[in-house]
Design a binder for these strands. Structure first.
Lengths: 338, 338
DNA sequence: CTGTTAGCGCTTTCAT
DNA sequence: ATGAAAGCGCTAACAG
């Protein structure tokens, strides 16, 4: 591409290709004098090594892949930010793939990674990932994998998550202490590890405060926002409607906001809401929304650091690291607090 | 890496390497029978071609780079979404790089792209990019470049932008019609094409309504949010304070919101605000904020399509395409509207 | 229709 | 301290 390669460089310098290569890699076999000349010429001609040739030869890509369900979502955007920071420091390149919560996409993406395109993979599973066979296959070809946030239950791989159980508990308790008696739990996918753990925390909090768990208060939503709003409108319009909402993802809180608006239900007077959210602009959200905020940037950073440790030590996830970070509850409105 | 390559495949099948290669690429030279056998075996052994070998041989990476200032920002996240959509459809991989509004970063990133790692580059310049020499160098090595949103003035390359002048005009007019007499324009970097064009629209609107342009009402902010809030607090506390704010980027509207809050200035009663914003959750923003929303997803899509057209036709941006999309003004509060 | 061969640009022994 | 040569896995010209 660039047209300027080792061959041209060496011709220009009157040296052999291998000497130039060694000089550029600061080999002890090359005299200081020659090194200086080579470096100067490389700089002058703006030489950049061909990454494909190097990758082929060294069987190394200096590239990692990040596979996430979506990007127009502050959590994942911040996580990528953390990942990029670490990758850049290590001199690695980052390939980004979006699955759009579609298992087929996830599967084919992972398959394409099999040829040695990347030295490691960071992934957060999509909502309907039922099997992890594709990931096991990839892993067996020797590619280290770190899961973050949405992790599989059935694979012995390093993971970086937050305290989903605890924060589910705290969120629910927060609503109970604010006076709620009937708290609905909104989730998108029953498969997700996060969904499940948050729900366990929800159930535990109900139990602690002697509130009977009602399966009808667990609302399984979809990725279709319009359908979700309709579903929630029905939920909130019924006689025995909830007085508290715990949204396990941000967009469900937003759909709740829309649905309440449509049927003139006042937040927080008639309905209290708490939600997972990583909007930097959370303070501009309807002030009645309290939020659970995950350390998204740190999750990205930790995951990437873990992955690079595996890449460098060539341990392909045999060692099971499980990093768990803490979320924080941010109260937006004192009237919600007891 | 994967361990399974053409050599192994061909041994398994009792064929030559090149026949297997041709069969996999559906060459007319290979019998249907053989093709079927090869395909079956490739499937069975989970063969994936080595991208580095192929890239080296064909001098093609099937990869593009996206270089953006930041990602935890809905505009760029949505743009990436659009880019990924197109890239995925074309079977391309996407390398993402963040400059964090730092010119040094941008420069070294572009330099690293010189070795043939990518077949094309999509870039939105960082705030302090004064020179585009690094981009001209890259371009001259034959890598097509498309600029989106933040584009250089001095380079003959395809660009995809929005109607910054018009939307700057409309935003300002919106405030004027809402009764504002002293409108401040908030921007981050004077170098940016977007900043400049929006400001030209701002000035034109003032002129149309016979409001004298006051240079002191152009507030140059930084990337430091805390410093910005302090700066705005001072602006809003002074006697001759503005009664309208036009924020050329979302985060400055947020800083305005904080600053007003601190000095108990009521929005929109005492201060009307309009801002560029691409938050999906904009309706949850303080309802007094009207916004100008760019078609971020479409910008990404258009840019990528333009780039792929160049890659496929091997025109390296000699042809000058300038796509301009339309932003939309979304009024959040009728009290702001006249 | 199938096989042989050269070579993409680089690193890495092994000679000199 | 420098150079010659092999080879990473693949494709494409050329032979058969």
């Amino acid at each position: 591409m660039s047209g300027i390669n080792l061959k041209k460089l060496s011709q220009e310098l009157g040296l052999s290709i291998s000497s130039v290569s060694k000089a550029l890699r600061d080999s002890y076999e090359i005299s200081a004098e020659t090194k200086k000349r080579v470096l100067a010429m490389a700089e002058k001609l703006n030489y950049q090594p061909n990454p494909f040739a190097r990758g082929l030869r060294k069987n190394k890509s200096t590239t990692i892949a990040v596979v996430i369900p979506e990007i127009a979502n502050n959590f994942f955007a911040l996580a990528i930010d953390g990942i990029q920071l670490v990758a850049q420091k290590k001199g690695y390149h980052v390939l980004t793939y979006l699955t759009h919560e579609d298992f087929q996409n996830e599967e084919s993406t992972i398959k394409h990674l099999q040829g040695g395109r990347v030295d490691g993979v960071l992934i957060s599973l999509c909502g309907d990932t039922a099997s992890v066979k594709h990931l096991i296959d990839l892993h067996q070809t020797g590619v280290p994998i770190v899961f973050f946030d949405r992790v599989p239950e059935t694979m012995e791989c390093p993971t970086v998550t937050t305290d989903d159980y605890e924060s589910g508990f705290k969120a629910t308790e927060h609503l109970i202490l604010a006076g709620c008696k009937k708290i609905a739990y909104l989730c998108v996918s029953g498969f997700l590890s996060t969904t499940q753990k948050r729900m366990m925390g929800y159930e535990a909090a109900l139990e602690k405060y002697k509130i009977v768990f009602d399966p009808k208060m667990v609302i399984q939503c979809s990725n279709d926002n319009i359908a979700n709003v309709a579903l929630l409108r029905k939920l909130l319009a019924r006689k025995n409607r909830p007085d508290g909402i715990f949204a396990s993802v941000e967009k469900l809180a937003i759909s709740t906001y829309y649905a309440s608006n449509e049927i003139k239900l006042k937040i927080p007077q008639q309905l209290k809401v708490i939600s997972f959210s990583n909007l930097r602009t959370a303070s501009l959200l309807s002030p009645s929304l309290s939020t659970i905020t995950q350390p998204a940037f740190e999750i990205g950073k930790e995951s990437a650091e873990l992955l690079f440790r595996m890449i460098e030590k060539k341990t392909f996830g045999n060692r099971i690291d499980r990093v768990v970070l803490k979320s924080s509850l941010i109260e937006r409105n004192s009237s919600v607090k007891k």
